[in-house]
Design a binder for these strands. Structure first.
Lengths: 143, 143
DNA sequence: GAGGCTTGTCAACTACAGCAAACAATCAAG
DNA sequence: CTTGATTGTTTGCTGTAGTTGACAAGCCTC
C-alpha cells in the first residue's frame, strides 16, 4: 500500500473546506477557520498550520477534542471523518441495532442475559422453530 | 480550578469498566479490554497501561481513532465521552449493552427479530421459566 | 513597477500522547 | 508460609501531534 495516498480524513476535510462556506462568498481560509474554531471553543485549541497539515494529510491522528471542534465548525457529525469500513458499524451490528429497536426483542435479550449457554441454545432452537412457522427466512447472519 | 478532579472522560470510562461486562463474571480487566480492542481493530492500537492512564485521568486527550475504538468495544457511541445528553441516554441502556456482549444473547436477539409479538411473548415466558430453574432473580430492579 | 496585504505550506522546535517494562498489591494453590 | 499468576499503576522513554514563525506565491492598490 502506497503511503502517498491522501487518507480519508484529509480528503473529507479538504472537501469540507471546498464546499462548506456561507453563500455569496468563497471558502473559509485556514486562519479564518482556526480563529473561529478557537472562538467557539473558548480557548486556543487549534492553529491554521495544523489545519493545513490535516488537510494535506501530513498529520493524520488528531485528538478527539480537536477533530470534534473541527466537525462542529463545519456543521457535520464527528464520525463524518471516520473511515467507512472501520468506524461505521458493520452490517451485523446494524442488524442488531434494528432488532433491538423492537421492544419485545430488547426485553427478551435483557431477560435472557445470564442464562447458561445450554439454555440459551435451547431457547434459540425454539426461536428457529418459530421462525419456520411464521415463514421467516432461516438464513444465518453469522459473523 | 483544582486539577485533581477526575475529568469527565475519566469518569465515564471508569463507569463503563465498572458496569459493562458480560453477566456472570466480573468487569473486564485492562489487559483484556486492550487485547480485544486491538483484535477488533486489526492492529495494535492501544495498550493496557494507556487505558489505565485514561481511566484515572492521568492522560486526557486521546486521539479520535483510539477513543472511537474504546467506545466501540463498550458498545457506546463515541460522543458518550463528551456529550452529557448522550451519556445520560446511554447509561440507561448499559444493561442492554452488557447483555448483548454475550454472543449467545446477541444471536438470540437477531434471530428473534421479526417474530410476531405473540410468539415473542411466548418465548419470553420460557425464558422467565428458565431463569427460575437456574436460580436467577426473576425481577429486574433496573430501569 | 514597488509596497503592503493576504493566502497555503514548510521548517524547527516543544510538549505530551502513548508505549514497554517495570512495580507493588492481591488472590489462589501448593 | 511460599510461589506463581494476575491485577492496576507508575516510570522512564520515544515518537509524533501540534505549535510558532518563517517562507514564497498570489492579489490588491497606488
Amino acid at each position: 500500500m502506497i503511503d502517498s495516498e491522501p487518507g480519508v480524513l484529509a480528503q473529507r476535510l479538504d472537501h469540507l473546506f471546498k464546499t462548506v462556506h456561507p453563500k455569496g462568498r468563497g471558502p473559509y481560509t485556514l486562519r479564518e477557520a482556526a480563529r473561529q474554531i478557537n472562538e467557539e471553543a473558548g480557548k486556543a485549541i487549534i492553529s491554521a498550520a495544523y489545519l493545513s497539515q490535516l488537510r494535506t494529510g501530513e498529520k493524520t491522528r488528531p485528538s478527539y477534542e480537536r477533530l470534534s471542534a473541527i466537525a462542529r465548525f463545519f456543521g457535520v457529525d464527528v464520525t463524518y471523518f471516520a473511515d467507512d469500513e472501520v468506524a461505521v458499524r458493520t452490517d451485523s451490528q446494524l442488524a442488531l441495532i434494528a432488532a433491538i429497536r423492537d421492544s419485545g426483542v430488547r426485553e427478551l435479550a435483557l431477560r435472557a442475559s445470564g442464562l447458561s449457554p445450554e439454555t440459551l441454545k435451547a431457547i434459540l432452537g425454539m426461536v428457529e422453530q418459530a421462525r419456520k412457522i411464521e415463514g421467516l427466512p432461516d438464513d444465518d447472519p453469522r459473523q
